[in-house]
Simulated assay, not measured.
Amino acid sequence: MHGVAAFGSAHLRGHTVIVCGRAGAARRAVARYRSAGADVLTAVVPSELALLGPSLRRASLVVGVDDGDPGWDVLPAVAREQRTLLLTEEPAAEHGHVTLVGGGPGEADLLTVAGRRALAAADVVYYDRLGPGRVVADLAPGAELIDVGKTPGHHKVPQETIQAMMVESALAGHAVVRLKGGDPFVFGRGGEEVAACLAAEVPVTTIPGISSSVAVPGTVGIPVTHRGVSKMFTVASGHVPFSDDELEHLAGLGGTLVILMGVGTLAQTIAGLRRHGMDPATPAAVVERGYSAEQRSTVARLDKLALAAAEAKCASPAVIVIGDVVAVGNDWKHLTAEFGGAARSLEDVHA
C-alpha cells in the first residue's frame, strides 16, 4: 500500500514521518511524503534508528520500505513502543525503465488500475495535454512532472526531444512514465517512443488506455459497430489532409468511419468522400471535448456537416463519426428535418 494515500496526504503538513530503508529503495516514499507536506526523516540502515531519538518519539508515522535488510524486522516492535503508526511499502525500482501509459479519453476514473500503479511508482512523468493531466500531481505524488503536451499547430517540445528526455531520465536510474491521452498506439506515437527506448537499451513496457475513437462517440449513444447496421469501423487521422487515393478507399470501405484530429480538414474530407461516391445523406457527427463538462455534439447528414460544424464553431479536440451508426443514437428524423433534405430513417438503416 502507498502510505500517503493510506494516511491521508491532506493531513501531513506539520507531521513528522520517518522513512526506513536504503536510499535508492526508499526514494519514492521520501518524495511522496515530502510532497504531501511532511517533515521527512530517514534511516538508511537499521542502526540509524537509535540516532533519531526524540524525533522517533514525536513521529506521526513510520514507513518501512522492504529493501531486503532483515534488520528492519525490529520496526513493528519500535512502532508499538513509541505508539506510532507503521506502514510498509514496496521498494522503488533499482534500475531505470520507461512505462508508456494510456490515460484514456480524459477523466481520471477511466485510467486503468495498472496505469494508476505505474504513476504512483514514478520518479518522472512526461504528460500530454489530453488525458488525465489535471490530476497527474495527485496520481504521481512526489514525481517530477514535465508537461510536453502538443496543441494543434504547436509542438512546444519536439517528439525527438521528448524521446531523448525519457531515455536520459531512465538511464539516470529513474522510473519514467510517459502519460498519453487515449491509447499509446492509437495516433499517440507510442511506437516511436518504444523504438527510442529499445535503441538505447532502456527497458520499456506499455499499459493500454481507452481510445477516444470508441469511447467518445459512445458518450452520445453512437456505437461504432451495431448489429445489422455496421460490422466494421475504420479509425483515421485527419491531422494532415487525406490524399485523393485515401479518400477513394475510405469512401468505398463501408461500415463506420471515425476521424480523429480532423476538424481543420473536415470540409475537404467531406468533399472528397462525396466525390468518390459516398451517399450525401449518410448520418454524421462531430463530438467535441469528450468526457468534459464542455462536451458537445453536432449531428447532420454528410452533405450538411461541414456547414453545421462551421456554424457551431466546432474545434479540437473532437471525434468525427460518419456512418449509419450515428442514426442509432440520435433522433434522425428530427435532425434531417432541421438540416434539410430527405435521409434514411432508422428503419431504413436497419433494413
Rank of each mutant, 00 (worst) to 15 (best):
R28Q: 14
S35H: 12
A29L: 04
R27F: 00
A31Y: 00
A31G: 04
H15Q: 15
A36F: 02
V30Q: 02
V17M: 10
V17F: 12
A26V: 03
A23R: 15
G37I: 08
T16L: 10
V19H: 04
A23P: 15
R32W: 11
A38R: 03
S35Y: 05
R34L: 08
A38E: 01
A25C: 03
T16I: 13
A29M: 07
A29G: 06
G37W: 07
I18C: 12
G37N: 07
V17D: 04
R28C: 13
L12Q: 02
G24N: 10
G14D: 11
H11Q: 13
G21S: 07
A26F: 01
R13I: 09
V19I: 09
H15M: 12
D39V: 12
A29V: 02
R27W: 02
H11K: 15
G14Y: 13
G24S: 13
G24V: 10
G37H: 05
A23G: 11
G14C: 13
R13A: 14
A26Y: 01
V19W: 00
R32F: 08
T16F: 07
A31L: 00
R32H: 12
R22A: 15
R22L: 14
G21I: 01
A36W: 03
D39R: 15
G14L: 12
S35L: 09
G14A: 10
L12P: 01
R34G: 14
G14V: 10
A25R: 04
R27T: 06
A38C: 07
I18M: 11
V30C: 07
R32M: 15
S35F: 10
A36Y: 02
A23F: 10
G37E: 06
I18F: 12
V40S: 05
C20S: 03
A38L: 03
A36C: 09
V19P: 05
A25F: 04
S35R: 08
G24Y: 07
C20A: 14
T16K: 08
R28H: 11
R34Y: 09
G14F: 13
V30W: 05
A31H: 01
A25V: 02
R32A: 15
A36S: 12
I18N: 01
Y33L: 15
R27L: 09
A38D: 08
V19K: 05
H15D: 11
Y33G: 06
R28W: 02
H11E: 14
R27Y: 06
L12C: 05
G37C: 10
C20L: 05
H11I: 11
R22I: 11
S35M: 10
H11N: 13
